[in-house]
């Protein structure tokens, strides 16, 4: 795991939201953190290139623009795991994919521009892998808050 110093930690904790919508937002955000603009940009470049950050920018909620999300799972035979992971990940509709310890050992989130796109993506995965996709669309959202602080 890449080493994080105190400034990195503060930056990650305080910049998970609220990035300003002004002409020079990095300068404004840097000032709030007590940093210079160039230092903030250099740190963000490093945190992105070392994969501490997966992204820096807007996080879109596709359902608000008529799209759909679902959580889906596969029971993948171990000897085919890598090939199936590659086939699933090849679809741009697959936003996240995790290996989990269970008979259903591959869990992924599909995000599509239309609700019909979910079923199309599932059909394509079933065709590409020969495996049955279990679809777990949300019936109710009780809570979503993806911000986590850097652990001490």
């Amino acid at each position: 795991m890449p080493e994080l110093d105190a400034v990195d930690r503060r930056l990650i904790d305080q910049l998970q939201g609220g990035f300003p919508l002004v002409p020079e937002p990095y300068a404004a955000a840097a000032a709030r953190l007590g940093l210079g603009e160039t230092e903030l940009l250099e740190r963000l470049e490093r945190l992105l290139s070392t994969r501490v950050l997966t992204r820096f920018g807007p996080m879109y909620q596709i359902e608000r623009i008529g799209g759909a999300f679902t959580l889906a799972a596969l029971a993948v035979p171990e000897d085919r795991y890598e090939a199936v992971a590659a086939a699933v990940n090849a679809l741009p509709q697959v936003a996240h994919n995790y290996r989990r310890e269970h008979a259903l050992n591959m869990w992924f989130v599909l995000a599509t521009e239309t609700p019909a796109g979910i079923l199309e993506a599932i059909a394509r995965i079933e065709q590409a892998t020969g495996l049955k996709v279990r679809n777990f669309p949300k019936a109710r959202e009780y809570f979503v808050e993806m911000k986590l602080p850097v652990r001490p």
Partner: peptide, 14 residues
């Protein structure tokens, strides 16, 4: 439509 604008950390790395 936008939940938030900022850093999206890899949970493992933090």
């Amino acid at each position: 439509v936008i939940r938030r604008i900022g850093a999206v950390p890899n949970h493992y790395a933090i």
